[in-house]
Design a protein around this nucleic acid. Structure first.
Length: 200
DNA sequence: GTTAAGATCTGCT
DNA sequence: GCAGATCTTAACG
């Protein structure tokens, strides 16, 4: 039986509400965990992108609140999940002050627990480094869909967890964002330098 | 009501 | 390396 909505010993997400770029950096190296009736999967966040409310035409919230992006205007620390290209979900962490409309897209994670379950969801024989190396892929591996839109990420069945090992010893690099057709000049993508599970 | 574009992935060349 | 899949959303009529 799944214990929905139970608080877990999770990451202190206080920093998410301050600055979105800072949040994108600090989410790198932390665990993301997902529990379903099939079992637990988890991974380390290794690639993020910041989407800002001001002066950022690539952000869904750039033209005000709408039905699709309403979740982005909610309190920091909740999930914003949307469907794109007819095939894929993308998973974001809402950041910044409530009502501002900013978020951090989780683009890739390094698989840690539940590899077999991820493989089952992604397709038998799927290579390890192809399980979660992209926003659509990790949503499939983690069984993330729109039922988790607005979910509080300090609670089961989807939550962030602190990774004490990575404190302050990460080599973080920032680059332009991937896949956006505007605001390509902004270096708002953050990656753990050299990690084998990056989307590219 | 209709249409075009999109924070992507896969399979084929 | 490139085109196709596939559907939701938002903008327009």
């Amino acid at each position: 039986m799944l214990t929905e909505g139970i608080s877990v010993p999770s990451l202190n997400t206080e920093f998410l509400g301050r600055d979105t770029k800072e949040a994108a950096c600090k989410l790198l190296g932390q665990y993301i965990c997902r529990e379903t009736e099939e079992g637990l999967v988890s991974g380390i966040i290794i690639e993020t992108e910041a989407y800002l409310s001001e002066n950022d035409s690539a952000c869904h919230a750039a033209r005000g609140k709408s039905r699709r992006n309403a979740t982005m205007f909610g309190p920091p620390g909740i999930a914003y999940v949307y469907f794109i290209y007819g095939n894929h979900y993308c998973f974001n962490v809402v950041t910044g002050p409530e009502g501002k409309g900013e978020a951090v897209l989780i683009r890739a994670v390094e698989p840690v627990e539940g590899l077999e379950l991820m493989q089952k969801r992604r397709g038998e024989g799927c290579k390890i480094n192809n399980l979660t190396s992209g926003p659509g892929k990790l949503c499939q591996a983690f069984a993330i869909d729109r039922s988790l839109d607005g979910h509080d990420l300090s609670r089961k069945p989807l939550y962030l967890k602190e990774n004490a090992l990575h404190k302050g010893v990460l080599s973080i690099k920032n680059t332009p964002r991937i896949g956006v057709s505007s605001a390509q000049d902004k270096p708002l993508r953050f990656i753990i330098n050299g990690n084998a599970f990056l989307s590219r």
